[in-house]
Design a protein around this nucleic acid. Sequence first.
RNA 1: GGGCGGGUAGCGAAGUGGUCAACCGCGGCAGACUGUAAAUCUGCUCUCUCCGAGUUCGGGGGUUCGAAUCCCUCCCCGCCCA
Length: 342
Amino acid sequence: MPVGTRATVKAISPEELKELNTEIILANTYHLMLRPGEKTVEKMGGLHKWMNWDRPILTDSGGFQVFSLNQKEGLVKIDEKGVEFRSHLDGSRHYVTPEKAIKIQQKLGADIIMAFDECAPAKSSKEYFTQAMRRTHNWLTKCKKTNSKSKTQALFGIVQGGTYKDLRIESAKFVAEQNLPGNAIGGLAVGESKKKMYEMIETVIPHLPEEKPRYLMGVGTPDDLLEAVDRGVDMFDCVLPTRIARHGTFWTNKGTHHIKNQKFKNSKNPLQKNCDCYTCKNYTSSYLHHLIKENEIFGHRLMTIHNIHFLLNLMHKIRETIDKGTFPTFKKSFLSKYKKKQ
RNA sequence: GGGCGGGUAGCGAAGUGGUCAACCGCGGCAGACUGUAAAUCUGCUCUCUCCGAGUUCGGGGGUUCGAAUCCCUCCCCGCCCA
């Protein structure tokens, strides 16, 4: 899922997203409740109509933004009932409870909505992870109850538990028991090592039903996708393809590259040879180098197109090789090329 | 010919006797980014380098313990007067 936090995937249009075979995108409760406010989106006919996107949308609940704000001093107060935080836009105080997070998402109108959870920082103590996990479970019950009448919006629960296996297992079991249409793994890729992250995925997966989507939140890099799929994950969202694109970084099957590097100044090659994205079919690296150095909007768009295409194409190949039974070979050969820095 | 102003690292621009290898901006080089407070942020950018050392502030000469900063002289640029 490409990420469209403020009801737009930065730099590109819904038409372009469709050309890239985007099936679903993510939008954000926290940002949209602050601006323009969920009521406006509701009045305008809901997210799909408002942003002219007729394919599925998932809204994140805002739990992660609370975590993000909490990285800075004293902007957030968390208790059993909910979270008080100050807006990053104007400092105004807001109070969000699990019930409220669901009601806002109902107004936004996404197809999949997320439970309001607490994403504890990677460096938290086990005591704190336990507390945050229990609170997340408690909140999940409330979210489920609030959303019980909805027949059009699927609520996903979120597994927490930090980097502790016993907590992760306890959390996965609790979330699975709620019998929701899908289950998410949260609280990873927040500063722990990749090794630890993979270990946590392995720990959690056996306790989440295979017939329902398993969604790893906020991940990730091409290698993370392969590793996570290998361990049983079905869905991802990540800001990386779009954010790093705007910052001048792009992916190819040989790893990550910086278009601003001097070596691209006079390169007639596309970003990636044999890539069939719009960017690579029509523009040279030299041109992209120039656009990004000059901070031209079109450069952001072209880079974004390439990166989203790269990731969605990777996922496509993953599905294809899983069907053919050749996924392990594909994973191995991809990673050996991807991780070898030229 | 006369008067005034000015020449500082790739560019612009501070500094106007010691704490100056010299603020800052741009440019250049490289890096970071994982449920987007992100068209953002970080580092390096005279030379050799590990601590450190060596050459710099238009050229030359001088004053001084010590000069980018003061004096003399030459060169160059801008504006004004003839």
